[in-house]
């Protein structure tokens, strides 16, 4: 049992789930890559004659160097089997497998939201985002979800655009309604 506690307090992380290291390795590798890109792109920052002893390149080089060093360190750690301890939370079930489908749906609905803000207006895009996200997460029944989504979107539009003057585009559906426009 003490193993679960060690995991919870996030010891050095000794659980060796077989599937995870690959993803972790890719992530650590990406940190190395960002560092390398930082070096290459950093070398192209122009140094104006006005620059003092320490120009605009120095700090980017330091940060890139740290990233490369840490990234390599992480890769070595991972190859030795020291994986990270995933974050804990009250709503996080440590015993279930990653539900990639739900994560994908949420990302999809956020992308849809981004695409819809301009053509349909913010409230419509927000209601669709809320409805879609709650549906992905298992909200039932669907009609209650839909009602909450629409009401929430309208309240936010009213409070932030109507009252506080934040320029959220109301969209063609609500364009004529004064309380939804700043």
């Amino acid at each position: 049992m003490s193993s679960s506690i060690n995991g919870a307090t996030g010891g050095s992380g000794t659980n060796t789930a077989p599937a995870r290291p690959l993803g972790e390795l890719i992530f650590a590798g990406m940190i190395v890559c960002v560092g390398v890109v930082g070096f290459v792109a950093g070398a192209q920052i122009p140094i104006p004659p006005s620059a003092g002893v320490v120009g605009p390149r120095a700090f980017p080089f330091i940060v890139s160097g740290i990233m490369v060093a840490i990234g390599i360190g992480l890769v070595i750690q991972l190859l030795r089997g020291h994986t990270g301890a995933a974050e804990e939370g009250e709503d996080v079930d440590p015993d279930v497998k990653t539900d990639w489908l739900t994560v994908g749906k949420l990302v999809g609905f956020l992308a849809l939201h981004i695409a819809l803000i301009v053509p349909l207006g913010w409230p419509v895009a927000a209601a669709i985002l809320f409805f879609g996200a709650a549906w992905s997460l298992g909200a039932k029944p669907w009609w209650r979800n839909a009602v909450i989504a629409v009401v929430l979107a309208l309240i936010l539009q009213f409070v932030f655009a109507g009252l506080l003057g934040v320029s959220l585009p109301a969209g063609f559906l609500l364009e004529g309604v004064e309380i939804f426009n700043g």
Binding site: L106, I117, W122, A126, A133, L137, N145
Partner: peptide, 20 residues
């Protein structure tokens, strides 16, 4: 609060904050 609504709400607020 049912968790599906809680996290959907968080996403909507975040999207609004980012847009504004």
């Amino acid at each position: 609060i049912p968790r599906p609504y809680l996290y959907s709400g968080i996403l909507v607020f975040a999207a609004m904050g980012a847009f504004s």
